[in-house]
Design a binder for these strands. Structure first.
Lengths: 199, 199
DNA sequence: TGTTTTCCAAGTCAGTTGTATGGCAATAAG
DNA sequence: CTTATTGCCATACAACTGACTTGGAAAACA
């Protein structure tokens, strides 16, 4: 065998270079040459790790989702154990918002994928595969809130979960457009949770 | 003077051809040649009406916003006069959702513009210029609800307005992704308004 | 009828795109 | 040493892009 190289590590580095380009110029504005240059490698080398553009796109999307999931997991780990359902929901939702540069980049790229998925059958599957899990997770928290008497039993957990996801997503949009401020977005979500959790 | 042609009418027709392409393949996938072919004219003719691609894009975006606004206006006209604030909000929000084919196309194109605006300074201004007006309109309705005793006075109209806009936007996203159904989206919005308007 | 203005088709051009190809360098196995 | 394998690279290519130029057709006025 010749020189040993960590393939996955290389692929991750290339994917992250793609994010930086896509964040600045959009997914369609990220040519393979640009990505290679951003990653500091040649076009040939990039092609050695991704045999086609689509392969790179799909890999980068999955890697992105993985990182976001890990960010949320780490944040939840930092909570005082055991955290209340309300804390879990607030922290998760806050972590999903584009409040720091890394998250902003992630959201920007995610949206670029979302738009492409609207016109691309195959990508659509990848793009929406994480939603049901997130929704179920949120619904579980609402159920736990009901069980603890913090949420009115008349609330429908699954509906509240979808509401919260959509709300977070919408606020993300307007945060990125700079139509509303981070403090405002956090305040709105906190207010929404405040009314969901009636003591 | 030579042959008289309605310039604006032509430009609108070309803009609508752009929408059809953008809806199917994304804004970046809509080349001038494709748009010309879709509009049934030659590339030269298209360039006679739009001297650059950007000019076409901006015109098409403004025309799109105008049409959406008129759709809402017409729908509100159809309400029994005088409509309650709750009715106004529900109907407006419902009209904004991608529930029929025309609205779906509009939303798809709007999102394509939104994504482009994230990376394009000039487009950003055009993209977010309608938001403050919509927000003020929603806030006025909430204020009217408070005045009529249908909304708790502790609610902050401006915050409720932003919440409603973000929620509608988020639901639009998941409707387009086919993660949730039209009935579900309408039900969620109705439930949200139900809790805002306490009899 | 001639003139002028508007409109439009076709072609060209420089630039960029994703992909394919052929080959070089380094390393490990035989 | 030989040889095969792997990592890597420069180049080439066909297709497509937006912008531009040229030339002429069509229609309203004089």
């Amino acid at each position: 065998m010749p020189k040993r190289v960590d393939h996955e590590e290389r692929r991750r580095a290339i994917a992250e270079a793609l994010w930086r380009i896509a964040c600045a110029r959009g997914l369609d504005g990220a040519s393979l040459r640009d990505v290679a240059a951003e990653a500091g490698i040649s076009l040939g080398q990039l092609q050695h790790y991704f045999s086609s553009r689509d392969e790179l796109l799909v890999f980068a999307l999955k890697h992105l989702g993985g990182l976001a999931e890990e960010r949320i997991r780490r944040r939840l780990m930092g909570l005082s154990a055991p955290p209340s359902p309300r804390d879990v929901l607030r922290e998760t939702v806050t972590e999903m918002l584009p409040l720091d540069e890394e998250s902003r980049t992630g959201n920007l790229v995610q949206i670029a994928y979302f738009v492409r998925a609207l016109h691309d059958e195959r990508l659509r599957g990848h793009a929406k595969e994480g939603v049901p899990a997130l929704r179920a997770f949120f619904a579980d928290q609402v159920r736990a809130g009901i069980a603890r008497g913090e949420v009115e039993p008349t609330r429908v957990p699954d509906a509240e979960a979808m509401l919260l996801i959509a709300l977070t997503d919408g606020l993300t949009t307007y945060l990125l457009l700079e139509v509303c401020t981070p403090e405002e977005a956090k305040g709105l979500l906190e207010g929404h949770l405040e009314r969901l959790f009636t003591p």
